[in-house]
Design a protein around this nucleic acid. Sequence first.
DNA 1: CTATAGATAATCT
DNA 2: GATTATCTATAGA
Length: 203
Amino acid sequence: MDSTGSLAAALADPAPTAARLLLGALLTANDVTVRIVEVEAYGGVGEDPASHAYRSRSERNSPMFGSPGTVYVYFTYGMHWCANVACGPAGSAAAVLLRAGEVIGGNELASSRARSRLSDAKLASGPARLARALRIDGTFNGCSVLTPDSPVRLTASESGWPISSDAVCSGPRIGIRSATDWAWRFWVEGSPAVSSYRAGIRR
DNA sequence: CTATAGATAATCT
DNA sequence: GATTATCTATAGA
């Protein structure tokens, strides 16, 4: 089986399993390629209070209900785009949030797109920066990362994927206010691009 | 280095 | 009208 077929099989798994299998895969869009090093899993309707799909299907979250590999992009905090990939059986509304990646191609382009001057390691460190480096916005909604002519593509090199489970860490998800004790965030140990956010956010 | 406040708009109630 | 799966500038140690 080729690597794209393996990825397709991985995306059909439940969110936490699919999430950890996305680590080490390559994401390409707009002439920039990143190696995914940090992700979070989100569940479907009625099963994950932190998920955008928790309440019900809406116009915004409808891409989450698509087949595995469907891209769901949302706009938040008045200025940031964040990218997800639907996973699990079609209609389950589970998804994986792409939180961080190492830029391995199109470095200068990614740098020129950044809102501020950033070191190479931080160009795609954080969900909004990742989307910005690849210039992913709302027009990508509904695309599939598994379709050859899609503007966003997910691939895997046979040598670098999947990542050894020894190198994968997990912990609580970031920036949410419910289900904070679910260890549904996964990252590659030691990657300089993994975001190191502060724990306590005061309001 | 750490900690905090402010920006800024679509979506949902 | 409140909330938000964030980032950056700025202040202080």
